[in-house]
Computed example of a mutant assay.
Amino acid sequence: MLPETFPSPLFLPFNSECVKERLSLLPPGPDGGEAGVWAILRGTELLVREGEPPGLSFGLLPEELRALEPKAVRLGTWDGRPCRALALSRATGLPPGLVARDILASRPDLPVDLLSLGGVAGQVLHWERGSRFCSRCGGALEPIAGEWGKSCLPCGALHYPHIHPCAIVLVRRPGEVLLTRKAEWPPGRYSLVAGFLEFGESLEEAAAREVLEETGIRIRDVRYVGSQCWPFPSQLMAGFVAEYDGGEVQVEEKELEDARWFPVDDLPSLPPKRSIARFLLDHHIPGV
């Protein structure tokens, strides 16, 4: 159901552009209690109605899930109706009439708007689970009216959603690209070097450091291309293209299973097209 190409990283799944016509995001709070739609997540699976096209569960929660309703979080409105998010344990059975679609799957069998709504719901629920207590004093946190932030009554500290920036970089030299592989990925799949920012770094500095640490390769001319929200659970992937500036491949075995240069006309299995890694490969090397 996803397009084969994206005109820019802005339109990649999980970015707000994909849901802006349907979702009006609102901070947690009462929503009047009227019937609405449900973004129900079981791990990384979004539960949708059976049939084509897939749709969200509407109205009251299925009877099997009714006891969990107090744990639901308001997301805002979806097509003008109240929209609520609810997390289930992975062991929860599927209520009749609903099917599970994994939003992290290479081919998730969901349109881009529902896929992206599942990502938003996952990020919000992750923040709610991880923001019950103050990291400074251990006191209980309370929502700040009209915001996504929370405040600690005992010590006064303010806390806001934690978004973790990462740099991901396509490294090129004439006729070749540098690709890496982690052991837990599907067999034969390779992707790009990526990593989290460290204290004091710019995104470009993080890109260069990660490439050097993981592969022993030095890079130059690091150029920003675009970014993608990556709600697994709360990353922002900033995509770059860079040129080879020296060094031989030395695999950092704590991080990677393999790293090597591949000819652009003989590439291995690549990341799904829903990712900024694939966008960089598709748009910044010839013949992919």
Rank of each mutant, 00 (worst) to 15 (best):
P3G: 04
E4D: 02
F6Y: 15
F6N: 04
F6L: 05
P7D: 13
P9G: 05
L10T: 13
S24F: 08
D31P: 02
L41K: 04
V48M: 06
E52Y: 10
E52R: 12
L65W: 14
K71C: 03
A72G: 03
L75V: 02
G76A: 05
T77W: 09
W78H: 01
W78K: 06
R81P: 02
R84K: 14
L88I: 09
R90V: 07
G93T: 11
V99T: 09
V99F: 06
A100D: 00
D102E: 07
I103F: 15
R107V: 07
D109S: 10
V124S: 06
F133R: 15
F133P: 01
S135V: 05
S135L: 11
W148D: 05
W148E: 01
K150N: 01
P154Y: 08
P161V: 08
V169G: 03
V169F: 08
P174Q: 09
R189W: 11
Y190H: 15
Y190W: 13
F196N: 14
E198G: 13
E201W: 13
S202R: 13
A208I: 13
R209A: 07
L212G: 02
G216I: 07
R220D: 06
V222Q: 03
Y224I: 09
W230A: 04
G239Q: 04
Y244A: 00
D245F: 04
V249D: 05
A259H: 12
K273W: 06
R274V: 00
I276E: 00
R278E: 00
L281K: 06
D282F: 03
D282T: 01
H284P: 06
